[in-house]
């Protein structure tokens, strides 16, 4: 299986100057389902920022599909990011766009699909999540789980090779956790896609069914 993510000798600090990673290394391959656990403020959010290229490492390299996120220009970084899908803990939907427009946005921006096709595809993705609300409202008033459904549909819009979910199950009921993780697992299963979950512990491992569980401990990745 191809290496999708390779972190080499990573050293990175938090905003307050505390070392979060020191000489850390990690390899994630296509076709894997990985759960990365760490206590609060121990590097999960920083890892997401490093994977998306928002944050650059102090030392070492973060390679996504073999490309060093620190060494490529913005255009190349944006192309790389379009091959990744992120589901944030707070969902972070675009507040001035309607639900459907949120899902359509990556497609409208990155693909040459006609507008009508984009909207059809967005609706199809939304249906897959089981979303029952009005797709033509702004997402601010939606319930947490509905927002999560929209965020997952948006992350899948460009059919990315890697999906990273930050604390996916946080604040959800057991039924909701099962539904949303099933949807993501179905997307990844029997494919060469990489699915990464982060969480504070492995309590939801039964639902997420990871192939590997990795802990961030002592500023390193431990398996």
């Amino acid at each position: 299986m191809a290496q999708f993510v390779e972190i080499k000798e990573l050293t990175s600090y938090s905003e307050d100057g505390r070392a979060v990673f020191e000489n850390a290394g990690l390899i994630l391959k296509g076709g894997e389902r990985v759960l990365i656990t760490a206590p609060v403020a121990s590097g999960k959010s920083l890892l997401l920022k490093l994977l998306s290229g928002i944050e650059k490492p102090e030392k070492g390299q973060v390679l996504i599909f073999g490309e060093d996120t620190s060494a490529i220009d913005n255009e190349a970084l944006n192309r790389l990011r379009s091959r990744l899908g992120f589901v944030f803990q707070d969902n972070v939907l675009i507040s001035n766009l309607k639900v459907l427009e949120n899902i359509a946005l990556p497609l409208l921006y990155h693909s040459n699909m006609p507008y009508d096709e984009v909207m059809e595809r967005a609706l199809e993705l939304l249906d897959k999540t089981g979303f029952r609300g009005d797709p033509w409202v702004q997402p601010g008033s939606l319930a947490l789980y509905s927002k999560k459904e929209v965020a997952v549909a948006r992350a899948m819009a460009l059919e990315p090779d890697i999906i990273v979910c930050e604390s996916l199950c946080e604040g959800l009921t057991e039924a909701e956790k099962g539904q949303i993780s099933d949807l993501l697992i179905k997307y990844q299963e029997n494919s060469n896609r990489l699915l990464v979950f982060t969480a504070v512990n492995d309590a939801d491992a039964g639902l997420l069914r990871p192939d590997r569980v990795i802990r961030i401990e002592g500023n390193r990745f431990l398996e």
């Binding site: 998306s52 944006n78 192309r79 675009i94 921006y109």
Partner: peptide, 20 residues
Amino acid sequence: ELGSMKISKEITSLEVMGID
């Protein structure tokens, strides 16, 4: 509007989607 988008991390979310 932009201030609110910045604080709620919507601008970061756009960057992560590869949208400048």
